[in-house]
């Protein structure tokens, strides 16, 4: 066990866990931030996506010991009231079916749009291919990403 000071959603948090513990389980089991989901545990499905700095990472494969002082943002911290352009676009297109993958999809899309404000379909596919939606809402996700890109440009 070891102590770690983490900056999560703008707040400093201290936890005492095994250094190999993935951030996913720190969030879910220790900090009650359960918006970040477990889907595969091997970084293949994207449901556990969070931001480390402004980069989307898979928290199931991120040991807490390597985070250091990099800021972590989870779905709970993406916006105060669900008013991030990506969240708003998701609502506008009524994207979710079961909804389980959507936090990961949103976090991945939000990081992607920071780096590419005017993406093509192919760029969206390439950026989002690591996020599985078992319900098959892919066409709506793509529409929502385009809507969010336009609103972020505005």
């Amino acid at each position: 066990m070891a102590n770690f000071n983490l900056n999560i959603n703008g707040k400093n948090t201290q936890i005492d866990v095994d250094p190999s513990t993935p951030v996913l389980w720190v969030l879910r089991d220790h900090l009650n931030l359960v918006g970040t989901k477990y889907g595969c545990g091997i970084a293949q499905c994207g449901t556990c996506t969070i931001h480390l700095g402004d980069v989307a990472v898979r928290s199931c494969q991120l040991p807490v010991s390597v985070v250091g002082n990099q800021a972590i943002t989870t779905i709970e911290g993406l916006s105060e009231n669900g008013d991030h352009p990506v969240q708003q676009a998701w609502l506008e297109h009524d994207v979710p079916q079961c909804g389980y993958c959507q936090a990961g999809q949103i976090m991945n899309a939000a990081a992607f749009l920071k780096h590419n404000q005017d993406p093509t379909d192919e760029q969206i596919d390439a950026a989002m291919n690591g996020n599985i939606c078992r319900c098959g809402t892919y066409t709506r996700i793509k529409k929502a990403i385009k809507t969010a890109a336009n609103s972020e440009n505005a």
Binding site: G82, Q87, L91, D94, A103
Partner: peptide, 23 residues
């Protein structure tokens, strides 16, 4: 007509909804 998913906002903000979120 078309009405939005009543849980839409909770889903996109990561609120505890699912079985695995129960505590």
């Amino acid at each position: 007509t078309s009405k939005k998913n009543v849980d839409g906002m909770k889903i996109v903000t990561g609120k505890p909804l699912f079985g695995w979120d129960f505590h």
